[in-house]
Amino acid sequence: MTEKIVDALGEACPVPLIKAQNAIKELAVGDILILQIDHSCAMKNVPEWARKEGHNVEIEEVDDGEWEIIIEKV
C-alpha cells in the first residue's frame, strides 16, 4: 500500500479536482491519495467526485481553511 500526497494548496477550482483525477489514475487499488487543499469549493467537489467513482473518502480539517482529502482507491 502506498500513500501519495498531492499538494493543491493555493489552487483554485477546478485544478485540485483535475490533479486528484490524474493522480488516482496512477495508483493501484488499495493505494491512498492525500490531497491537500485550501479551497472551500474543492472541499465539496473532490469528495463528491471520489464518492461517485466508488472510492472511500475521508476529509480532515488540518487547519483553519485547510483540508486533507484522503481517498482510498477502490
Binding site: M1, E3, I32, M43, K44, P47, N56, V57, E58, I59, E60, E61, V62, D63, D64, I70, E72
Partner: peptide, 26 residues
C-alpha cells in the same frame, strides 16, 4: 460533508506523525 465516513483502513501512525498546528477559533 465535513463529517467523515470512517471506512478507510490506514496506518494511523503515518497520519498522526505529522505535527498539527493547534487550530485557531475564528
Amino acid at each position: 460533508n465535513t463529517e467523515t465516513s470512517s471506512s478507510i483502513n490506514r496506518d494511523l501512525s503515518v497520519r498522526t506523525r505529522r505535527q498539527r498546528k493547534p487550530k485557531k477559533n475564528l
